[in-house]
Simulated assay, not measured.
Amino acid sequence: MRRLLFAGLLLLPLGGFAAEPAATTVTPAPAALASQAGSGMAAQLGQLGIGLLLVVGLIFLLAWLMRRVQQLGPRGGQVIKLVATQALGPRDRLVLVQVGGEQILLGISAGRIAPLHVLKEPVPTGEAQSASPEFAQRLMELLGKDKH
């Protein structure tokens, strides 16, 4: 479109005289103009699609990289552990957090966290309890590994 305007400006008469008579100017056929505009738009859409795919791919790559970096940190060495949580409503909940050897009951609401109680004796968690030997034996029998 710009080329057509530029060509039209060159053909304007300067000082009342035209470089060529208006009758001899050759204008491209409308079909030729449509094919040029269509190919230009297709090229722009192709570039837009490739750019979009690159950005989405970069987002997925960064998300994967963040997950990998977070997994490299120490698992067992966490100082703060979430012991239990209980929802009280759509925005309110109770959370039992263990910090070192101390457990703290926290009240969490929209925009606010308040310590409610510091427990003198820690609440027993399910981590210390292991599966009973009967369960382990029964599981091994079902799997066919324990053959007496």
Rank of each mutant, 00 (worst) to 15 (best):
R2Q: 07
R2V: 02
L4H: 10
L5V: 11
F6R: 05
L9A: 11
G16Q: 04
A19W: 10
P21Y: 10
A23W: 04
T25W: 12
A29S: 14
A31I: 08
A31C: 02
A31K: 07
L33Y: 00
L33A: 11
Q36T: 08
S39E: 13
M41D: 01
Q44F: 10
L45P: 00
G46A: 10
G46M: 05
G46K: 04
G51A: 15
G51R: 06
L53S: 12
I59W: 09
F60G: 10
L62S: 06
L65I: 05
L65Y: 11
L65Q: 13
R67S: 05
L72D: 02
R75H: 07
G76K: 01
G76M: 02
G76T: 07
G77M: 02
K81D: 14
K81L: 13
L82Y: 00
A84N: 00
A84Q: 06
T85K: 14
Q86F: 10
L88S: 05
R93M: 14
R93H: 10
L96Y: 05
L96P: 02
L96V: 07
Q103Y: 11
Q103A: 09
I104E: 06
L105N: 01
S109H: 11
S109A: 14
G111K: 00
G111R: 00
R112P: 01
I113P: 00
I113L: 15
A114Q: 14
A114C: 03
P115L: 09
V118A: 10
V118S: 05
L119K: 01
K120T: 15
P122L: 03
P122I: 08
V123Y: 10
P124M: 05
P124Y: 13
T125N: 02
T125C: 05
E127Q: 14
A128H: 01
Q129K: 10
A131L: 15
E134T: 11
E134V: 11
F135M: 04
Q137H: 11
Q137P: 01
R138V: 02
L143K: 12
L143W: 04
K147M: 06
H148F: 09
